[in-house]
Design a protein around this nucleic acid. Sequence first.
RNA 1: CGGGGUGUAGCUCAGCUUGGUAGAGCGCUUGCUUCGGGAGCAAGAGGUCGCAGGUUCGAAUCCUGUCACCCCGACCA
Length: 573
Amino acid sequence: MRLSQLPWTTLKETPAEAEVISHQLLLRAGLIRRLTSGIFTWLPLGLRVLRRVEQVVREEMDRAGALEVLMPAVQPAELWQETGRWDRYGDLLLRIRDRQERDYCFGPTHEEIITDLARRELRSYRQLPVNYYQIQTKFRDEIRPRFGLMRAREFIMKDAYSFHMDQASLEVTYQAMAQAYARIFTRLGLRFRTVEADSGEIGGSRSQEFHVLADSGEDAIAFCDADRFAANVEAAPALPPPGARPAPGAPLQAVATPQMRSIEEVSAFLKVPATRCLKLLLVEGSDGGIVALALRGDHVLNTVKAGRLAQVAKPLTLASPERVLALTGAPTGFIGPVGLRIAVIADHAAAALADFVAGGNREGFHQTGVNWGRDAAEPATADLRNVVAGDPSPGGGGPLAIARGIEVGHIFQLGDKYSQAMKAVVLDQDGQERVMTMGCYGIGVSRIVAAAIEQNHDEDGIVWPAPMSPFDVVLLVLNPKNSEAVTATAEAIYLELRQAGMEVLLDDRDARPGVKFAEADLLGVPHRLVLGERSLKDAAIEYRHRRSGAEEKVALGDVLEFLQQRLAGAAPG
RNA sequence: CGGGGUGUAGCUCAGCUUGGUAGAGCGCUUGCUUCGGGAGCAAGAGGUCGCAGGUUCGAAUCCUGUCACCCCGACCA
């Protein structure tokens, strides 16, 4: 592609709307433009990146035996009503109405559509298993779209859905997808981790996420290299502390703690570490009452774990301050277990505390020297908290570490949740109708583009992993108007490289050298060639590697071979 | 949805407090000079000051409404 024929506008200044680096660089490098909140146009150079990602995804899905289809983006309400999600999916679902006043939605996902397709197309166990996939635009009306392509409302997703006679068959495809995903992210040159996950609203049992590692990631993932355990913090079990709880040693005492509502305030005021404080969170119970959840002061409630408790109302809802006051006689911030007439469920670590500090159930007071069993009833126990760095790994290999990740892939074993609701059945060997078992497998294609930048950039701009760079090579022609020899040589090299199958960006614009250098760095193509009168005098061309900055002079006759070796190298960029 | 903030040239912003008919830098056009890391000089083009209504002789500026965009918030017990 010739830059002289491309209306390419880069930005020297960072647009005010962009907060994260990937969003800033995508805009500055002229790859995308925002149309409205959470909705973007892909410009010519940006689209090349997206297409390269799609191609890798497509190749690996095909290799794994999946079948590409393309389903409609607009979906009739009837199918969503069949599974009950028309009502349950909520405001995330963009609902639209046609001229006949019929209800539709713009698809945020395609379980209903594919299940409808499967029940129409599939008749016999002989046709199973089958795995359909598509690469397509989704729309989710996010509460707050942000971070550019990372949390957009409209985005490109690869979603796949598999159909099976039984769980064993599902397992096989599920593992094949896990392997395909690992191949995809490896091929794209991304540093990633596969982690155990919560299956969330989609339902089903087993589920794993694929995270691109980046400090700006929205998710926390817990892992242990020694035993290869890795899980989203949402899903990582916190083990009970070892050893027996110490015996009570201190007397129960009430202490005045005026205005001290938070653990930080109480801990600092009483000079007691947060690890010896108890915090109680009052949530709505499934029986219409209130349930108290007890955590150690330094721990954080895991809402996924808490939401699974039978005693807790779904969805997990904190009790209102008014209700707390009415039921306990004390305002929030001063609630403790002593004398509390509410069921308490304690996290294992909170249940292991002795001689701890807790709210006094009286405004302006806490208690010290509190002990379970002696001062308050022994609580029920459960795993309620997020793991923290240093916690023992559930795999037994040692302490956990925490890293940040961007979720770019998620695979689920759905079971029969949708096939049952929509009566997607085939006949088995005995001629009996059997509900199919399903799996589903998603990849955030457009999000991968943002995640790759979050993970691969420097102060000059993007540093694409080679497999997703918009071009393999950028060739800068310096001052083309000054020298016909330079222009002619550049044209010859441009042709030679393209004939060898390389994607080459030729900067043949009548622009100053400094502009060309700066914009090439911003765009982030891994390999750069520079041809000017200076190098032409030596019958050479200058090469520079974007990521390392390493430079070399290459004889004109050797350019093709030199680059072929570079491109063939395993180093992804 | 609640709270906060911002809407002025393609981009980043000033001007608003104290009303008097719109500016800077970058970008864009033309010319000259430059020409190996986002050039210099000169001359230009480009704005219903988000929109609507009100106050006023006069509104970017004050008031009301509305729309859009951005940020924070479901860890407080």
